[in-house]
């Protein structure tokens, strides 16, 4: 499905923000979200494709406004709620 994530070739996102280079995470919570994704994926709670799908289902305006790991958090919340797991 052509959803908001599918942005190859679009214009209007401005120059590449390379000043923030250097650190993998910019807050501890981002690292925790990364770790949750790896552990839950490793346990088979969801596949990478289901995780990507959950990111892509974020409403377009919210997707564009959110930071990278905020999207991951939203996807994790969605998948766990849909599975009735947590």
């Amino acid at each position: 499905m052509s959803r908001v994530h599918d942005i190859g070739g679009q214009t209007g996102f401005g120059p590449v923000p390379m000043a923030e280079d250097g650190q993998p995470f910019h807050a501890d919570w981002e690292a925790r979200v990364f770790a949750l994704n790896r552990v839950l994926g490793g346990r088979g709670v969801f596949t990478t494709d289901e995780f990507r799908d959950a990111i892509e289902r974020i409403p377009a305006e919210e997707y564009l406004a959110a930071g990278y790991y905020e999207r991951w958090l939203r996807a994790l919340e969605t998948l766990l709620a849909e599975r009735g797991l947590a």
Partner: peptide
């Protein structure tokens, strides 16, 4: 897209999610 707590600060949402995941036995 239910079950989110987007009114909370993001760090608190992560902490809550982590606690629920650990309580559910899905991660340590």
């Amino acid at each position: 897209m239910t079950g989110t707590h987007s009114e909370l600060p993001v760090a608190a949402r992560v902490r809550q999610l982590e606690e629920r995941v650990i309580a559910a036995g899905l991660a340590t």
